[in-house]
Structures are given as structure tokens and as C-alpha cells.
Design a protein around this nucleic acid. Structure first.
Lengths: 238, 238
DNA sequence: AGGTAGGCGATTGTTCAACAATCCAACAAG
DNA sequence: CTTGTTGGATTGTTGAACAATCGCCTACCT
């Protein structure tokens, strides 16, 4: 009946969340919804009806509403009183704020590094995965690997709270990128960029890495904004 | 019956949250609980019974549970499955991570400043309020002003997401500080420190401000940790 | 014809009551 | 003293009910 509906158990929620303690139904539902949103099953702007989603996932309205609250707080959903919850539609101002935050945090993570060598395993893995995905023309996977690269970069600062901030911000960025179809032109350039940053860090040259990162963020912001403008629904004013 | 219970409407939630859109019952309950926790009505470690709190505030269990989820996500409460929600008891590791985050973000906020002059109104207000509160021996208010000072400092970076991170982190810090009774020894030294930082910024000397801030954070971490150790329940291992 | 008030269906907001699952402390048995 | 059991209390989750609100459609009035 509800073949796709029963919320399967994501041993580890696949997004990297530690899942410190046993999960209740609400958080499992939230995990499921988070995954569906980020993979585009619910495009930005779409409404999530309590009845429809609840029936689909096989949970009651009350439990579902608890899950909604969680996702609203992570800015994946917005809640309009008496109108329901919608998948967030990030604005250009959001994209700008996201990049401001990234610049602040990622730069600071590099600047705070001590003396080399640095523990770069996470970065290496992300770069390798990204390049492999590119060979397979799997551009969503390239995007995921890119996000993992920057998460690993922030992880060098060694702060759980900062990591979580970044996880949220990058999830938002993915949301902002969703309407862009041809992910290739958008993600391909950064494969080389990430490898360069990694190489600089491997050589112990923190300052060079910071300069590269700064350029990366400038490029990213410009590219993302341009791509979004290109893919904006044709101006409805005729 | 529930004289103190009825959740009054906090026009603006007093904590500085913008309250972008109309608030539902759950978020109002969350605001009330947040206030009560930060003012110590619910000390860290205490359990929040659904029945008791729900009856006190005059809301149903379901609505209350929605509010609980919100506060769990901001790390003010912890949720143990089938056991209920408890006011968070920050560990020394938490205090360390909090300071790591503060150092990362606050330093980056200063470093990202452009050319002087800087918009320092928020910082000035916080310093003035703090000094006035000190004259009145109102040390909790001094603590609040100190938090406002550092929030204003981060606000110089101009990122809403960063501001929100900091709001949460500083609320956690207040929680970690709660068991410490004599707030005076803890907060008094920072009055002068904050004024120094403000003076450096007023003079346009960003680097000096950064050095002062760094020293402040070192001091703060050491002092907070020491004070917490002093006020820890006598070690039960004999 | 056109704008407006009002009605109506659908959805959310909130509460209530019920039952299952789990925990915990007290107690009984070995 | 340890172990197992039992029973009460609390949370987890559901389903149903009703109020409040929204958006649309229609009928009415000018």
C-alpha cells in the first residue's frame, strides 16, 4: 500500500549527521524529508501538505508537524501561518549571505591552522570522489563531493558547532542551486580549484590556500548568481 | 489557577530575534521557555515534564512537544528517548568548543572589516548598558550586556546566518555559566576589556582590536573553566 | 459590466483522549 | 547481595474532533 511510504531506517542519515542517540519517529521523518528535498523530489517553492506527506510517509499529522518544525529551523522549509510549509526558495540575498558566511568561516578555519602537516584525509577523499564522479558524468555527485570538501575544510578548525553551521549553510546552497539544470558548467571548474587548495595545504602553504579559497568563493558567488539569473522563470511581465 | 502560566505575548521576544512572521503557539511557548531557562527558573539538568509544563503554560502536550523540538535543536534542551527533555548541562568540552567557535567567528568578523570608520553604535550601547548595570550591582544584566557586545561585534560582518550562530552559542555559554553564583568576579573584568576593544575600533585600529579580543577570549575561557570547576558538586569519588 | 461582500470548501492550528512502549523504583526470591 | 519481576508513571504516537483562517467562487448591488 505504502511501498515507498514506510520511512526506512537510515542507519547513518547519509548526510553526515552523527546521530548521537536513538532516533524517534519525528527525526527519522525529518531525515527522510531532508533527503527528498536535497535530491529534488520536492522542488523549492512546493507546498508540503500535511495530509499528503503524512499519508505518504505513514505518520500522523502531529508527528509530521514535529518533523516540519525541525526542518523549518534548519531553513529548508518556511512556515506561513495557516497556509502550511513550503520548500524554501532562497533569494539572491540569501545566496549572498551564504557566501559571506562561507568566506568568514572557511577563511578563518584556514587561518587558524597551526604548523603543518595538516590532517587532510577528509579533503583528499572528497577530491578523489569528486573527480571520479566527474568521469561518470554524475554532476549531482560532483556537487555533493564539493560540499564534502568544504565541510572537511571547516572541520580542520575542530569545532562541532562550526561544523553544524556549515552543514546547514551548504545544504541551503544546494537548495539555491537546485533550479539550475546544467550542473556541469557550474561544478566542473571547481574540481581543479579544490585540488589546488589541497595541494597548497599539503605543501604546508596556508597562505596560498587562503588566497585560492578566496578566489574560489568570489568565482562561486558570481557563477551561482549568474546561473540562477539564467534559469529564472522567464520574466512574467509582458 | 495559571496566573503565571498563560503565555503572554512578547511583542518582540526580547532576545533580539526579528520575529519575521506571525508567531504560532509553539514558538511563543518556546520563547517563554527560552526566557525561563536563561533566567534560571529551570536550572541545568532539571527535567521538563510534559504534563507539568504543559499545564503550567496552558497548552496541550502536542503543542508543547513542538516547542521542545525547537529548543532541542538550539541545544538548550536535550532529549532522551522515552525519558523526556532536560535542560542541557554543558560540559567542559562544550565550553571549549564554544570558545573555539567564538575565536573563529569573532576574529574573522574583525579581520573582515574594511576601512574605518566602522558602525559601532551597537557596541557603544552594549558597553554603556554594561557599565550602568555594574553600578547597580546587577551582574546578570552585566552578563547580558556583555553578550550583546559580542553579538554586535559579530554583526559587523553583516551576515544574518553568522549572527544566528552566535546568538545560539552565547545562549549556551550563559547556560554553562549558570551554576556559577558570584557572577561579579566573572563579569567585572570584561567591562574594561570591552571598552578597550571599542576604543581600538573607534580609532580605526583593527589589528589592535583583534589582539585585545584574542586576549579576552583566552581569559574568558580560563576564567569560565576555573569558576565552573570551583562550583562543581564535590567530587563524589572518594 | 464591474467591483465588492459574503459564503463555502479545504487546510491548518490546537486540543483531547486513548493506547503502546519504555523506564524506573520497589519488592520478592534465590 | 544479586537477580528477576511487577506495577506505576511518563513518554511516543495515533486518530478524531472542532475552531480559525485562507482562497476562491458566486451573487449581489451600483
Amino acid at each position: 500500500m505504502d511501498a515507498t511510504g514506510t520511512p526506512q531506517e537510515p542507519g547513518t542519515p547519509a548526510d553526515g549527521r552523527p546521530a548521537a542517540e536513538r532516533a524517534g519517529t519525528a527525526e527519522r521523518v525529518a531525515d527522510t524529508l531532508r533527503a527528498r528535498i536535497s535530491e529534488g523530489a520536492f522542488p523549492p517553492g512546493s507546498r508540503l501538505s500535511e495530509e499528503a506527506v503524512g499519508g505518504d510517509l505513514g505518520v500522523s499529522r502531529n508527528t509530521l508537524r514535529e518533523a516540519f518544525r525541525l526542518l523549518v529551523r534548519e531553513r529548508l522549509l518556511v512556515h506561513e501561518l495557516n497556509r502550511g510549509v513550503f520548500v524554501r526558495v532562497p533569494t539572491d540575498a540569501d545566496v549572498e549571505d551564504i557566501h559571506r558566511t562561507r568566506r568568514l568561516v572557511e577563511s578563518a578555519a584556514l587561518r587558524g591552522l597551526g604548523r603543518p602537516p595538516y590532517p587532510l584525509e577528509g579533503l583528499v577523499d572528497a577530491v578523489v570522489d569528486g573527480e571520479r564522479a566527474a568521469l561518470n558524468d554524475d554532476w549531482p555527485a560532483v556537487s555533493t563531493a564539493n560540499i564534502r570538501f568544504h565541510l572537511a575544510l571547516v572541520a580542520l578548525a575542530g569545532s562541532a558547532r562550526t561544523d553544524e553551521l556549515m552543514r546547514g549553510v551548504l545544504a541551503e546552497l544546494r537548495l539555491a542551486l537546485h533550479p539550475v539544470a546544467d550542473a556541469r558548467a557550474l561544478h566542473e571548474p571547481y574540481l581543479a580549484g579544490n585540488r589546488e587548495i589541497l595541494a597548497a595545504l599539503g605543501a604546508g602553504d596556508r597562505d596560498a590556500a587562503e588566497r585560492l579559497l578566496d578566489r574560489y568563493l568570489d568565482d562561486s558567488h558570481a557563477q551561482v548568481t549568474a546561473a540562477r539569473a539564467r534559469h529564472r522563470p522567464p520574466s512574467p511581465a509582458d
